[in-house]
Each structure stands twice: as C-alpha cells, then as structure tokens.
Simulated assay, not measured.
Amino acid sequence: MTFPHLSQSLIPPDPMTKLRLKRGSPKEEFPSLDGNYTYMAQVLDLHMYTRQFNRATDSGVIFDDIIRPGLEEPGTRTGLRTAGCLAGDAQSYILFCDFFDRIIEAYHNYRVSSDATQHSDFNYDNLKGGDGCDPVYAVSCEVCVTRCVEDFCFPTHCSRGERRQLLTLAKTALDQLGEEFPGKFYSIDDLNQEMKDKEIVMEGPPASLMKIGVARDWPDARALWVSEDGTLAVWVNMEDHLRLVSSRNDSNIQEAFAVICNSLLKLEALYKKLRHPFIWKPHLGWVVSSPAEVGTGLKASITVQLVHVVRHKRRDSILDRLRLRMEINHLSGMHKVSNQQTIGLTEVELTQLVVDGVKLLIRIEKRLENNGGIDDLVPAQK
C-alpha cells in the first residue's frame, strides 16, 4: 500500500552530511523488534529504516532519536499499544513524513493528506450531555490538552537553555492569565517542599520518562501552575512544552471541557502576543511531540466502574467500534475510558465520542447485570 507524502520541496536541505556519526550500514544498525508491541514496530521495516537513515533535521534529530522511545519501552502483548516514537522537533514530521504518516494512520485510523485541514471547535456549548453520565458508574473525569511552542525543540531533544526559555515564557503567559484566572506558579522544588511540609512524599518522574530522555536534568525548568479554584493545572516542560489539565471528582466532563476551552484560547492569544505561537500545521493540526496526540492534542476521559463489561469477551470489539480505549485497573475496579483518536475530528467531536461511548457502556453494564443480551446495543462496525 502506498502512502501520500508531502511535497519533497517541503523537506529542508539535509544537514546529515555535516555530521560525522560512527555508524554501520542501515542493515547493521537496524534495531531488534522481537517482542516489541508498539505501532513503531508494526510500521518499521528495513526498507523504511534505510529511507530515513541518512536524514537529520536542522536541530540534529536523526531517525534513531525518533524511534528510541519504542525501543526503550516496547510494551506488552496484552497492554494498550503505544505509538513507540516521539518527534524531536516540529521539522521531524516533515523530514520523516513517510514514517510519521504511517504511524498516525495506524494509531488513529486516519489517513494523513497534504490536502486535508484539521479543524478546531472550542465552543463547549456544542458538547451535548456531558453532565448526564450515571454517577453510580461514572465517578470522575478529566480533559487534558498538550501544546508545543514554535522555535523550540521538543522535550526529548531540547537543550537546558531552551527548556529554561520555555519556562520563562510560560511564567510570563500564566502570570498574565492570572489577571483573569487567578492561580499560583510552582517550580518542582517548590512542590517538593510543600509536599514535605504536609508530610507527603512526592515521587520523581516515571522511569519511562527517564529512559526516553524526556526527564533529562530533572527537575530543572519544570513547573506547575494551579488555578486558585483548583479547576485547572498547567504542567510546563513535562511530556510536552505545555499540558493543561482539568479534572473533577464527578463525571461532569461538560464543566471540565469548558475550563480547558476557555483557558486554552486565552493562553494561545498570550503566546501569540509574546511572538511564540503554538505549533500548527494545516494537515496535522496542533503539532506536539507524540504522533498519538497530533491534531487536537486533546484527551478526554471518564473513570467508570464496569465489572461485567470489562470481563466480557466482546469488550475490545465494542471499544474499537466506539473509537475508545480503556485503561483497565482490576485492583481498584476503576477503569479510565478515553478517546483513542486525536486527529480528523474537532475537540467537541472527540469529547462527544467519550460522552456517548461511556453512556452506552453503562447501558451495556446494566443489561449484563440483569443477565440480558447485548446484541442490540453493540454499535455497528466503525
């Protein structure tokens, strides 16, 4: 199967010739993918690897940098499959487009085209029924969105100086946001001290972020801004330049989504005013480090108690048809349901998928509790 690529004229002059990397041939350097359950391993073969081998972005990102996350964290046969790759900068999506386009297609079931345009919709009033999930089953919710900033490398590749500049930008923008939406800015050291004062041990970054280089120089230039009313948190220089999170101890995702929309639009305007807009490409939408989040950068989730659905033989098929994914926690019995896709639909449409899907899963759960059949509830193939 052939995949459309962006015009070769978009690919910048290759700086690889200026590097003196001591490497063998592509065949000699091709990684072992045995037991690797990422989408990267599904897409990558020697032919693909050879095509990317002698390319580097202007900031020095090479293909081995792109695929290293999937080699360090290969996943498991039964776990949720990850993308297994991260872009080192925005240019990575252009230079390595034949690889990233296939990853995006495999992960999102969405075919990238240079003729397509990703659309946004931040009108939270267009979301319907987000406050109507049965609270007996739906216990909490969260909406988060990621953004990366023009002219800076992404976390796996950025320098300490870049990271510190990003922190300064974020502090300036969030201080201005605070004039309308009061909040407090914490460095990670500040957070550690505050947690110690409360006799709470704050853990460091996950080992997975250390392995793939995202957590280099921890905790240098990492920070958290929290709104005064507790409805919004903004993480700086974690998995991406910015991650906005609105979480609630109930299932009213309508309110969480509204907080994200309002604050994100204000932050976008502030960053433009600072002459460092968020990265946008018409055919990809909002560009961030992970191809699993390009398009909208949005993940909406509702945590549910679904004893019977989780154990049902048709669970995976139902989730696939709903275009949802479920993080299963048998220990707590609480399972997080979220959108798998982040590109090709608007922010409202993606959140609506989660709302409608969770409501249907709860209907199926109730039917199973009464030993009823569910054939009439199972959605048609997507």
Rank of each mutant, 00 (worst) to 15 (best):
P4E: 09
S7K: 09
L10Y: 11
L10S: 09
L10A: 12
P13C: 11
R20F: 11
L21R: 04
R23W: 14
K27T: 15
S32M: 09
N36G: 07
A41F: 00
Q42M: 08
L46W: 05
T50A: 10
R55Y: 13
D58Q: 12
F63N: 00
D65G: 05
T78C: 07
A87V: 15
F96M: 07
C97G: 06
C97Q: 04
D98F: 04
F99E: 02
F100M: 04
S113F: 02
D115S: 13
A116R: 06
H119D: 03
S120R: 02
S120C: 06
L127Q: 01
P135A: 14
A138Y: 13
S140I: 14
V149L: 06
D151R: 11
S159Y: 10
E162I: 13
L166D: 02
T168G: 12
L169T: 14
K171V: 15
T172Q: 09
Q176H: 12
E180A: 13
Y186T: 09
Y186C: 09
I188F: 01
E194T: 15
M202F: 15
E203G: 14
P206E: 10
A207Y: 09
A207Q: 08
D220I: 13
T231N: 08
M238G: 07
E239H: 10
E239C: 07
L242I: 03
N249E: 12
S251A: 15
A258F: 05
A258I: 07
A258T: 07
A258V: 11
C261P: 00
C261T: 02
L267W: 04
A269Q: 11
L274F: 14
K281T: 13
P282R: 03
H283I: 14
W286T: 10
V287W: 01
V287H: 01
V294A: 03
L298E: 00
K299A: 08
A300E: 00
I302N: 01
V304G: 00
D316W: 08
L319E: 02
D320Q: 08
R321P: 05
I328S: 04
N329M: 13
L331V: 15
S332C: 14
S332P: 08
V337P: 00
S338T: 10
Q340L: 14
L345E: 00
L345V: 05
T346M: 01
V358Q: 01
L360R: 03
L368Y: 04
N371K: 08
P379S: 09
K382V: 15
